[in-house]
């Protein structure tokens, strides 16, 4: 059984329909890249999967781990193992990163009938993950994302993912705003998380992330639909030829 099955998914924000029939199957252990031009619906897909309420699903279904995903609240999706690495991680002044992450981990553990971790056990657990992400201990004590640089925010997202160990990670433009060194650290963290039990959906505009996180499948999203799917080499093609051809192709077959 597939971990995630998206069938003919339609979604809108306000009056604007953004997703116009997405079909996608993701199995455990796979990494899928979603590429596409600005405004094609990549981020919308990521947000819809995580349950953002401003996006209204108008049709289709999403089955995750045998459950109707669209029926679950955002927090229940998270507890069931869906993690969204935000394109713009949110600042929460006054709440320490460590406190926040411990609260998150413990709600998820509780959901699965596991014992909650105390501060000591928690520190033990995060030490290892911090090394992988080259995270400074000081970042743990600072308020969530508050005053973090762009690179620190993105690193913090992947660090959270490493601690929360999701089944399905959705990375929304994790490469945006990163220089090449920061990109490598972040990608290294993501690669360390790849496992046969875990699937990832990597949403990106550029190929450069995909030479660091090499996907098993690449899908091209344009105007709310997946217009092309292939292996990792599709990303390279797009890099060489750009997205413009996609429109030309579709115009040629009168799809617009």
């Amino acid at each position: 059984m597939a971990l995630l099955e998206i069938k003919d998914l339609h979604a809108r924000i306000g009056d604007r329909e953004i997703l116009k029939g997405i079909n996608l199957t993701v199995n455990a252990g796979e990494v899928h890249a979603i590429m596409g031009p600005n405004g094609s619906g990549k981020s919308t897909l990521a947000q819809v999967l995580s349950g953002r309420e401003m996006y209204v699903v108008t049709g289709g279904e999403v089955i995750y781990n045998g459950k109707d995903l669209l029926d679950l609240s955002p927090e229940d999706r998270a507890r069931e193992g869906i993690f969204l690495a935000f394109q713009y991680p949110v600042e929460i002044p006054g709440v320490s990163n460590m406190y926040f992450l411990k609260a998150a981990l413990n709600t998820i553990r509780k959901h699965h009938g596991l014992e909650e971790l105390d501060a000591m056990d928690f520190i033990e657990l995060v030490k290892e993950k911090m090394k992988i992400m080259k995270m400074d201990q000081a970042l743990l004590n600072r308020p969530v994302n508050t005053g973090f640089s762009g690179g620190e925010k993105k690193r913090n997202e992947i660090f959270q993912m490493a601690v929360l160990e999701p089944k399905l990670a959705v990375l929304d433009e994790t490469d945006s705003g990163l220089d090449i060194d920061a990109l490598r650290v972040v990608a290294g963290g993501v690669n360390a998380m790849r496992s046969p039990e875990r699937a990832m959906i990597v949403v990106t505009h550029y190929q450069r992330l995909l030479s660091e996180i090499v996907p098993d499948f690449v899908h091209v999203l344009a105007e709310g639909r997946i217009v092309k799917s292939g292996g990792k080499e599709l990303a390279l093609e797009l890099e060489a030829e750009g997205y413009a051809d996609l429109y030309d192709e579709r115009e040629a077959v009168g799809k617009v």
Binding site: G51, E53, S73, E75, R77, A78, P89, F100, L101, T107
Partner: peptide, 15 residues
């Protein structure tokens, strides 16, 4: 957006 960020990490709105 702050609330949603927390919820996406498994923390309920109330919490």
């Amino acid at each position: 957006d702050q609330i949603f960020y927390c919820r996406q990490r498994g923390i309920s709105t109330e919490d």
